[in-house]
């Protein structure tokens, strides 16, 4: 075997052992995650901590809980923005919102909400459509730090220009700045917007269902999971969705073929919006 391939083999074993150690020592279960991105993130941590190998990182996290916290932050996916993929929010406005008026109370779950941009975007959209008063939005994420940031809801004012453009492309009816107070370099949602939003820590890999929802959004979260864990989460979502409830995935994610036929109908194939049959 060539030396580089040999080294890669050893590293692969070290990675599996680290995941096992994280689970057995801290209950942090990343064993069902897709390995490629995980490996890159863990290598970054090894480099940032000036360690020589994943084994050295394992030793460190076992003995130093603070190092484990840093590792969890390295493993947290946090790419988000207001009205990310505007065409999705436009489709949501046109094809999902009209069906929500008939429900007396609407529960929406954003799974993998990170720092909350998507949740606040939805809140804005729903208040423009006159639905927000009847809605409760649940934003959950595996990472407690991110959830804390989402609760505070302070966004970089420098990004508001970009968000404003997204908002318009998403069919926004006013100006995004109407919904935020800008102080120094931070933009905070005005009070009313936070009223019906609840942020909580939830781990899709191990936690169960916690309510019954009219809509579940989980965009670009499950791409980090292996196929088996994806199936588990799809089962969780199915059980957490009301009949005729909506499931929204990321632009390049599909339902497992078996589910696509029997459990869901397609509302918008391009924007990956599905509806539970019954």
């Amino acid at each position: 075997m060539n030396p580089a391939a040999h080294e890669l083999d050893v590293e692969g074993l070290e990675l599996e052992l680290l995941l096992e150690a994280m689970f057995r020592r801290y209950g942090a279960d990343f064993r069902g995650y897709a390995r490629s991105s995980l490996r890159r993130r863990i290598r970054n941590m090894v480099r940032d901590e000036r360690l020589g190998s994943i084994s050295a990182l394992q030793e460190k996290i076992l003995r130093e809980p603070e190092a484990m916290v840093r590792l969890l932050d390295h493993l947290s996916v946090c790419v988000t923005s207001m009205f990310r993929d505007p065409s999705f929010f436009l489709a949501f406005r046109q094809k999902v919102v009209p069906h929500l008026f008939s429900a007396p109370f609407v529960r929406i779950w954003c799974a993998g909400a990170a720092t909350g941009e998507e949740v606040y975007s939805l809140a804005i959209l729903l208040s423009e459509e006159g639905l927000f008063e009847r809605c409760r939005l649940y934003g959950t994420d595996i990472n407690a730090h991110l959830i804390e940031k989402a609760r505070r809801g302070v966004f970089d004012a420098a990004l508001m220009g970009e968000y404003e453009a997204n908002y318009r492309a998403a069919g926004g009816k006013g100006s995004l700045s109407d919904y935020f107070r800008v102080a120094y370099d931070g933009a905070t949602p005005r009070h009313g917007l936070k009223r019906n939003i609840l942020f909580a820590q939830h781990n899709l890999a191990i936690d169960g269902s916690f309510n019954e929802f009219n809509v579940i959004l989980c965009r670009n979260v499950m791409i980090y999971f292996g196929a088996e864990l994806q199936n588990r989460v799809h089962e969780l979502f199915f059980q957490s969705l009301r009949r005729k409830g909506f499931l929204c995935l990321g632009r390049r994610e599909s339902l497992p073929r078996a589910l696509a036929k029997t459990r869901y109908e397609t509302v918008d194939a391009e924007e990956r919006i599905y509806r539970r049959r019954s």
């Binding site: 991105s37 890159r40 790419v79 390049r252 994610e253």
Partner: peptide, 15 residues
């Protein structure tokens, strides 16, 4: 998206 190759299939990330 980044494309990751995992064994016999592709994966995606927004890293």
């Amino acid at each position: 998206y980044h494309v990751h190759v995992e064994d016999a299939h592709f994966g995606l990330s927004v890293d």
